[in-house]
Design a protein around this nucleic acid. Structure first.
Lengths: 236, 236
DNA sequence: AAGTATATCTGAACATGTTCATTTTTCGCT
DNA sequence: AGCGAAAAATGAACATGTTCAGATATACTT
């Protein structure tokens, strides 16, 4: 997949193949952005990159795989931006909000084809299913970012495991909302993110207050059990 | 779409077209169940119903539309079963649980092709998008069932509007989980439903207790605002 | 019964994602 | 420079969802 840096350094340029792959990828995104995902044909993409139709399939196993590769790139970019932005911040509310807003920032021009990511959500066997085996690595990576965002917050051990996963799920929901959001600059989604984070933090503080903790215990148990079950990958 | 009952009574049988439509529909479901959605071809369906390929398109605008029609049928069946089952019951926990378990009951043999329902979740413009304009009627109908399930519970006015919609959303999540659930008889999904309902009812009682209500007020405000925003169909 | 409009149905043609046998290019090696 | 294997690329062929111009059947009117 990647050249080792040694080779890259000596030849001082990507291999021919790598260059074509990038070209196809970029032309594809350009077309997706301009005409939308559906309206863009694999033949269009190939033509734009000046290769034969089949060449695209030499580098990407399917049309959706291009969007998937795009999203992987988003992930990397996001991780970098998050690390940079969170460096100085301590406040949980701010940290969480940053992570989510940054994600939206990166996706802002690509709502037209983001929907392709969700196409196989309901088909566990498909290699591109959001919840499937085939996307496990990406998913883990994404969850990691949220774990980092939670950072130094003091949380019960159990929540430390579940919350990042829950946030990842919430982030999926956010993207879905984002796709449907026709407000100027998707302001509504950004507002929703702020509300959500405030609510979450408020909920945390509330649950932590000495006054209600005893009453909350049994409820929390049920909730935890439910989430743990839902989060589990495989069950008998 | 429907014969008026007068005509049906006098002719004592469905029109030829109606019969073909039903035949195509049933053969399609049979094939979906046996071979899965992807593996079933429109040509397969037509052949099984002994008509030409184009005939299927005379009755259903697309392959997914068949699944959509199936789900509409599920809705009707579910509404009937719910009304029957809830007749005697008063307890909220039991009512909610019944509604959800009944839905699963109806879907139990059809996990193989339920995924097709979610295919256009991320494409607002598509006529079959779960959150789109084209499915609004079905959505409303489904939300109605949950409103009925909530029945006589005393709820704040605002929750009366939002909760049924939230339950509909939860029910979508349930189906997604159900599709991925490989446990015997999808026992895990049923367990999850019970936990969820218990949690919900517990949460309600908790929020209602005189002790915590004052502390909860501001939180509830934020939450409500968030949900109301999220539930809104169109925004500037 | 004949005529006409409407409903139903046909099957070839089309568009597009995908596969694959084959050809061309690249690149390290001698 | 020349060779051979691996990589890259080709474009025709295929599968399948979908469309459509036309054929056939049904039902209603006179």
């Amino acid at each position: 997949m990647f050249n080792n840096s040694q080779a890259a350094a000596t030849t001082s340029r990507r291999s021919a193949g790598e260059r074509t792959k990038v070209l196809i990828f970029e032309k594809a995104l350009e077309l997706f952005r301009n005409k939308g995902y559906e309206a863009t044909t694999m033949r269009d993409i190939a033509r734009a990159a000046k290769v034969a139709t089949g060449a695209a399939y030499y580098y990407f196993p399917s049309k959706e795989a291009i969007v998937s590769a795009y999203y992987e790139q988003v992930q990397v970019l996001h991780a970098a931006k998050v690390r940079e932005k969170l460096a100085g911040k301590e406040e949980l509310r701010e940290r969480l909000a940053s992570v989510l807003h940054l994600r939206l920032e990166i996706l802002k021009d690509d709502r037209k084809f983001l929907g392709a990511l969700f196409r196989y959500t309901g088909e566990p066997g498909h290699p591109l299913s959001v919840f499937g085996k085939g996307t496990e690595a990406q998913r883990k990576q994404s969850v990691e970012i949220f774990r980092e965002a939670l950072g130094g917050s003091e949380l019960a051990e159990e929540w430390k495991e579940l919350l990042p996963w829950g946030l990842w799920l919430a982030h999926l929901a956010m993207i879905l909302y984002f796709i449907h959001d026709e407000s100027e600059g998707q302001a509504n989604t950004h507002k929703l993110v702020d509300r959500f984070v405030e609510m979450l933090v408020g909920l945390g503080e509330f649950a932590d207050s000495a006054l209600v903790r005893p009453f909350l215990k049994p409820l929390q148990g049920k909730m935890m059990e439910m989430l743990r079950e839902a989060a589990g990958t495989k069950q008998a």
